[in-house]
């Protein structure tokens, strides 16, 4: 049972959290102006990174806040968590 650090509540067991997929994939400004392919890319396509990956998480059983995390998908280790209004950290 891994611990995940909520930026507000601190470390809690992973079962208190829900996963929100890749972070930094904003809703397009003008969906109507996108081609079918561009729109499908937004709706259906996400990276499948091995290693450091920026993800969205929600402390759904706790404070219900969304936050972002850099997690290594190979080791599961959370390298850092950051709030939605923080910029994406630069990772090596």
């Amino acid at each position: 049972m891994q611990l995940i650090e909520c930026p507000w509540c601190g470390p809690r067991e992973e079962v208190e959290f829900s996963y929100g997929g890749q972070a930094h994939v904003p809703y397009p400004d003008d969906p109507g102006g996108l081609s079918d392919e561009e729109w499908a890319h937004y709706v259906f396509f996400r990276d499948n990174t091995k290693g450091r990956f920026a993800e969205r998480w929600n402390h759904s059983i706790g404070c219900r806040r969304w936050f972002n995390a850099i997690r290594d998908t190979a080791t599961y280790r959370f390298e850092r968590v950051y709030r939605l209004d923080d910029p994406k950290p630069v990772t090596p």
Binding site: G20, W66, L84
Partner: peptide
């Protein structure tokens, strides 16, 4: 409720 919160928090703060 989660769906609404997700949009409000992540897209339309």
């Amino acid at each position: 409720l989660d769906w609404m919160e997700e949009w409000v928090q992540t897209e339309w703060p």
